[in-house]
Amino acid sequence: MNSSIQHPAQGHQAIHIPLCGDKVAAGFPSPATDYIEDRLSLDEHLIQHRDTTFFVRAKGDSMVMAGIFDNDLLVVDRSLNPVSGDIVIAVVDGDLTVKRLIKRGETVTLKPENRHYPEIEFKDGQELQVWGVVTSSIKTFSRG
């Protein structure tokens, strides 16, 4: 597999460091000056709407088949309108839960991605409260 090396920005704030300045007083000007670009920022990559994005910690194994494991860090954007197929944070019995949202006709279902867990169905009349749409899951590996 071909992989290109990409440099992540450090810190949680996007830091823009130009690779070289224009103040060359004498000598041959650096040929790289014309190609300076901003370093890549994970914040910019993962967060579309800063003011409506929250981080939520995943607990348990009900979503393992979707690739969400215990202790993963979920990026949740509340400003997105949930559509069928989205992974969402929903409020069930006063608790936050992460499940896949499925809409079929009048029935809305919260579907776990693990066959050991039951689906939660909301028939007409029952209101499902979606807290936000999960846009990414971040897994950090322990060293050694």
Partner: peptide
Amino acid sequence: NYTTAWDELPVAK
């Protein structure tokens, strides 16, 4: 501190 501390984030099961 749900929004300002990494070890105090809200939890979803």
